[in-house]
């Protein structure tokens, strides 16, 4: 199954990269605020069970994909 993991910074963690991009957009006169930048990880997990795919992806987040000090993950099974 195809799985998407969206890793984003937790609320309260400073995102200087997001801030820089937000300021860049302000330079083009876009009205935008609270811009945050995350990371999208896509993968194929060899199973036909969405539950199994989700629990595998969760285990991957716990082991490697996410640093819980600063990040959180949203898992999407497609």
């Amino acid at each position: 199954m195809k799985v998407r993991v969206l890793v984003s910074l937790k609320a309260g963690i400073l995102d200087p990269q997001g801030k820089a991009v937000e300021q860049g957009l302000h330079g083009f006169d876009f009205e935008v605020e609270h811009l945050r930048i995350g990371r999208l990880i896509e993968m194929e997990i060899p199973t036909h069970s969405p539950d199994e795919a989700r629990s595998q992806a969760q285990a991957m987040c716990d082991k490697l994909l996410v640093n819980p000090v600063m990040e959180k993950a949203t898992i999407e099974v497609l």
Binding site: L14, P16, Q17, N67, V69, M70
Partner: peptide
């Protein structure tokens, strides 16, 4: 050491980028 959980915390991008 932080990523290996031998020390607490994490090192983020510098505030100035």
């Amino acid at each position: 050491l932080c990523e290996a959980n031998l020390l607490p915390g994490a090192l983020l991008r510098n505030e100035s980028l």
